[in-house]
Design a protein around this nucleic acid. Structure first.
Lengths: 109, 109
DNA sequence: TTATATACCTCGTCTGTCAAGGTATATAAC
DNA sequence: GTTATATACCTTGACAGACGAGGTATATAA
């Protein structure tokens, strides 16, 4: 595992939920958006991405439906649920808190 | 695992090295310093702490020696090595980069 | 002698990540 | 026609870090 991944570890769900706040989307597109936003510095590995979708759907944070494209590969779309929005807000608050803690901890004195 | 722990995951080594930059120290004291610095909001679990010491010593980032207390429980002191300092600097840079990436990723738009 | 604080350690489990593999559709190149 | 690339989904098995639960030992205070 790369160091950057270890740093992002635990935030995968938050990142995905953030993408879904704006509009429904599907795995491939979400990953492209992440790569673009970070200027190619970060991407979610496919296995990680689809594991996260399963986890989020099981916990009621997202729901899914198949798109009705009549051309190209099929797409599975995801929607964020009200519970997902709550969880998102909670996770962002957690991130802000733990980022603050780390700032205090990783610099000497 | 608590959410906060998952956020800190991967930063344990950096936190420990940061403590050792100032002076040699031992496990129990390092943990107390962390609890104090974060106002009790975070602590390293003992199993995590001693796993990290083993990992850091094996990778040449720290060395250890037994203290010569003639009272109380024995203490195992750790020193950061030049290689450990390098690693620390690398990890801090990584943290700063990934914190920036996350800022861009966890907020919509 | 019982409790608390200090101080160290290990074992086994859990969870998130990811390499490696797979399937299927559409387009462009040769 | 077939080979390559892009799109788009998925699963399996292994790995690594975190940690609950247990253990050992010393000193002091109740």
């Amino acid at each position: 595992m790369s160091l950057a991944s270890d740093m992002i570890r635990g935030h995968t769900d938050t990142i995905i939920l953030a993408q879904l706040l704006k509009e429904d989307s599907y795995g491939y597109k979400i990953n492209r958006a992440i790569v673009e936003k970070t200027g190619g510095l970060f991407e979610l590995k496919e296995a990680t991405l689809y594991t996260a979708f399963r986890r989020l759907e099981q916990s009621g944070c997202i729901t899914s439906y198949w798109g009705d494209e009549n051309t190209g590969a099929r797409r599975k779309y995801y929607s964020i649920t009200p519970h997902g929005v709550e969880e998102y807000n909670r996770m962002v608050a957690q991130w802000e808190q733990s980022a603050g803690l780390l700032q205090r901890l990783i610099y000497p004195e």
